[in-house]
Design a protein around this nucleic acid. Sequence first.
DNA 1: AAGTTGTACAACCTCTAAGTTGTATGTAGG
DNA 2: CCTACATACAACTTAGAGGTTGTACAACTT
Lengths: 109, 109
Amino acid sequence: MATDELTEVFAALADPTRRAILERLARGDATVNQLAEPFALTQQAVSKHLKVLEKARLISRTRAGRSRPCALDAVRLDEAAAWIAEHRRVWADRYDRLDAHLTALRGDS
Amino acid sequence: MATDELTEVFAALADPTRRAILERLARGDATVNQLAEPFALTQQAVSKHLKVLEKARLISRTRAGRSRPCALDAVRLDEAAAWIAEHRRVWADRYDRLDAHLTALRGDS
DNA sequence: AAGTTGTACAACCTCTAAGTTGTATGTAGG
DNA sequence: CCTACATACAACTTAGAGGTTGTACAACTT
């Protein structure tokens, strides 16, 4: 994944409202107004959030008459998780080596 | 992890410079000036980024004479990864059920 | 055809993030 | 001590994020 795409995904996840929207969508698709209801926000504000999520490709939208239901798209989340996992692994290795080193220094088995 | 902490972590990861700093630190601890060198940024700007990373507890800092080396802290990354994994799982389940449903509709085995 | 409903667009406000320059502080070394 | 170096603090600028209100438009309902 390109750097800017990672940036978009993490930036999208950095907003509590957007994370809440994703959590809501995980329980089923929803329209803008349905998503807006639990928040003390206008429909327009929620639409903006959805635009951010859509640009980050964390959700996709379809047309259904006059409403535009949102559905989750897991691909980008996987890629973000992969970035974290990769770097987490690298330095977990470092700490494992450090642990081993310290253990060796202490003369433990 | 509290909501604001997740927000801090994701917001910290949303900046390409900060991700690059983390990648650099994954290869070994470094001082502010060492971190600043590859970027076309002032020392002060890098210090600000480090402050953000430290507040999000993605790095920790120690004193070593007149320098303050930075080291990675994997805990928060794990928590961010856990959030992603949890939600990814939920809607992976949804799509699995959808798949099953569609398969059933088609009359496949 | 007329009205209602769901969503998007535009203009605006305010706050904060990310960068700058300039300066202060603490520690090391001559 | 004095100087040089590594980092931090303060004040400022600029751009963008997140919110608002007002309005437009397309698609159902009657």
